[in-house]
Simulated assay, not measured.
Amino acid sequence: MKFFTQFTTIVLLLSCFLSIQAEKLKSSQSCEFQAIFNFGDSNSDTGCMSAAFYPAILPYGETFFHEAVDRFSDGRLIIDFIAKHLGMPFLSAYINSIGTSYRHGANFAAGSSTIMRQNKTYFDGGTPFTLEIQVEQFNQFKSRTGKFFTQANKSSYTRHFPKPEDIAKSIFILDIGQNDIADVISKVGKEDSHALISNIVEYFSKQIQSLHFFGARTFWIHNTGPIGCLPVAMPIHNAHNNQTQVVGYLDQNGCVNSQNDLAKEFNKKLKDIVVKLREQFHDASFTYVDMFSAKYELISNANKSGFVDPSGICCGYHENGYHVYCGNKATINGKEIVTSSCEDPSKYISWDGVHYTEAANQWIANRILDGSFSDPPLPIAQSCQITH
């Protein structure tokens, strides 16, 4: 009897050990994504706005591409480093029809994009490519490319487009909300910012649900960054701002607290929405990525990480409230201002006062890809695992 009890105990322990090992093996397996579909604003736009309106000009793209490319940086964006990490080529913008390949996905992100619908035109600082439109563009992409694979000569399309069954094996990345928060900031004192933010995240949830309906199953969702730490928001580049002397207006890094507080509120509500989506869709994985913390860590440790002061801007003119963005020129107080880039962009966090340099993008990408800033804390290559 004693021997039988010992034997049973050993069997149970062995079974438990094998179960744990199986779970470890499962958690270490790569998802082997077939494609990436990206949705967002200028932080991940790889050509939409240039294809739709005006082509890119130097010095945008000068560091990595050595020519004008359709990115709001001197080189690669975070989405470019994500694609490289997953073993895929750079994503082509959905509406960029020249020299594009969509075999490994498409990028629907567009500069100035928002989650909410807009009443402004591009020339008024708006964009027609809101998240809702980007999601509909994906639906069209899926529908149109799917038809190719029902034709007799479908083999000729496999080199250019993902197979219909690859949609469920793809990762859907969303990095949007910064422009919505900027709009909320502009309405502080005029409208209820808490209600506005709640409406934004609820509308975001609807677009995620639409993507799920269209076949998306793995979501990698970035929250919004510290908008109050963008150099153009800092008082050093806005001498006309009469609030700079108010106690508590700025944090230890010179960032505007009130603006970052709104971003934090958005992020908290966004995370709550992600939790609800997990509860609603048990056949999908939702990874919430804390971009705010990753970017703020870089800003807080700029010097230790080899960067200049985070308020520094590599390209553009930003003085006394006047802003001439990178690659443009203007006449201010009778003096012609011609903008050019700094001598070494790799030393700067901010490229043009709003967007990050390639060096900063790479620093951030290296921090988020291993899951260190994610909930659940899974590397991006394993983010297809469903956790509830």
Rank of each mutant, 00 (worst) to 15 (best):
A233H: 10
N257R: 12
N241W: 13
F266M: 04
N253A: 11
R278S: 00
F213D: 08
D251A: 01
N223D: 00
K264I: 14
D283V: 03
N179H: 07
E191A: 00
Q245V: 08
K264V: 10
D272P: 05
A263N: 08
I181E: 14
I200R: 00
I221M: 00
L230A: 15
G228P: 09
R217C: 06
Y288F: 01
N179R: 06
D183T: 11
K169A: 14
S210Y: 09
Q178W: 04
L196V: 04
A239W: 04
K276C: 03
Q243W: 13
N241D: 15
I221Q: 00
V274C: 10
Q245I: 13
S300W: 08
Q280E: 14
H222S: 06
K190L: 14
R217G: 05
P226V: 00
T218Y: 00
V184C: 11
H212V: 07
L211N: 02
Q259K: 10
N253R: 10
R278D: 01
P231Y: 06
Y249R: 04
C255R: 12
H212N: 08
D192L: 15
A216F: 09
K269N: 14
Q209W: 05
L196D: 09
H222T: 04
E279F: 01
K206G: 04
M291S: 15
I299K: 02
F204G: 03
F281N: 00
D183W: 05
A263D: 13
L270K: 01
N238A: 14
I299R: 03
I221S: 00
L174P: 04
I173K: 10
